[in-house]
Design a protein around this nucleic acid. Sequence first.
DNA 1: GCCGTTTTCGGCCCGACTGTTTTCAGTCG
Length: 568
Amino acid sequence: MINEELAEIFGEMADIEEIEGNRWESLAYRKVSANITALGEDIREIYKRNELRKIDGVGSAIEKKIQQYIQDGKIDTYEKLKQKYPVDFRNLRKIQGLGPKKIGALFVNLGVTDIESLKRAIDAHKVAGLPGFGEKTEANLLKGIQVYSRSGASRILLGRAYGDIESLRSYLESTGLFDSLIIAGSARRMRESIGDLDILASSTRRKEAADAFINSEFVSGVVVSGESKITVNLKLGITCDLRFIDADSIGAALQYFTGSKDHNVHLRDLAIFRGLKLNEYGLFRGETRVAGSDEKGIYESLGLAYIQPELRENTGEIEAAMNGSLPGIVDYGDIKSDLHMHTNDSDGRNSLVEMLDHAKKSGLEYIAMTNHSVGLKIAHGLDAERFSELNARIDEESARIGIPALKGVELEILRDGSLDLSPNTIDQMDYVLAALHQYVSSNREENTGRIVKAIESGRINALAHPTGRLIGNREMYSIDLDAVVEKCIENKVFIEINGFPERSDLPADIVRRVHDSGVMFALGSDAHSISDLRFIRFAAAIARRGWLTREKIVNALNLNDFRKLLTK
DNA sequence: GCCGTTTTCGGCCCGACTGTTTTCAGTCG
């Protein structure tokens, strides 16, 4: 993805300029790097519209660099800087305690260019003794390398970590040493992946509370340990900050440590503009605290509507909160149904009865049972006969257990764009998902054509996991999503938000981009087991991060109203 | 290098923690 390449390049340019002592150039590159990462659209599209300068932080010099990269695949300034510092910043920066200045010093003095050569320098005991480096720094860098090689990828999927996070929280609560515990940071913003965990705590017995945390079975090592802040490595593979907060600044701390960083920078700018000062202890006018005990008060005092954590990415939410155009996004409690799940009749692990039972216990009002169809052999897809048997059981068991269940299917879109069950069989279903799983081409027109043909078949209700991405495994299909969304609107086909962590599909930035197009969204967990049913919450989180109101989500309807939308 | 309801020049978020220092630089979030 070209956005990531460019973000990486500007990040490295920021590092090198910082080594060279050019603070402000560094800051500018750093900012642009972050903003390109957050784009949510291929930067080449922005380039084609000649709107690069509209990206925050892009002025004439950086615009030229981006243009050159798109046209020639390289940036002269960057090549020149790299000649002077042929250093693997990307990976070295991942070592705890290594920033640009230290990397620069290691390269200039010892010729360190990557983690391997850093390891050799440490083994030869050459690092301690450099200006600014001592014995402890050398030991910490060695520890940092070990942590890095153990954990590899530094971000983990929130949907996968959620259970462990909850366990950690309940363990801490069970010690009785904490008066309150709040998860902040990207986990509170419900990002699909998190790079660390932020916990805010209040306690009258901080020392004991800190010891209980550090010595718990969740922790693999301590990084820093101060009076008010402790950083540890979790066995989960990420770091965790625990901060002790005074009760009267808890709102300010929560606001501050929920982030995102860019949101906070923007908010602080706004505070300064209004003659105020915002930090993690409160909102101040001179010495007087204007707000700080609760989070809402901070936004109010800045003249803003309250901004839900999921929206705090500095992508226009502050402007919207200022002029009253912030949408009232869907609540988790608004979601009445789960419209995508499997049983052991196809590739699920639990039986129909177990799934229905658990769905009911988890508070859903109704569900759609959507097993794979015969075209997906690897998932034991069902043919007409097996579906007819299953559908009879669905009616019977859903009545017995007391949760309405729609008879559904996740159909295969075949190579030629046709569907893999007969019209007759499809018509016996209450709810029809269609998806692309196989024969995915590198040809954008071909993929788009197949999907459009399925949408126009008049037999499907929703398009499942539209981009086909599998995080950490497979990029999105090459498809023309805007054309697909347009066809969905024309044909009254819903577009899915799949909450299965590796899918998270549509992604939130795309949801945001099409949230006002008129298309309706259908949320599903894609559960293959009873424990997967919790993923409907992450589908809802994507909807929230995509700025969706409840009116745009079919799962917010009760069963009767939902059925009225099912025209086919 | 970017940016402007205070500016076309002079600012650019800010506090905790650590380690190396003897008053501070670098890193992190």
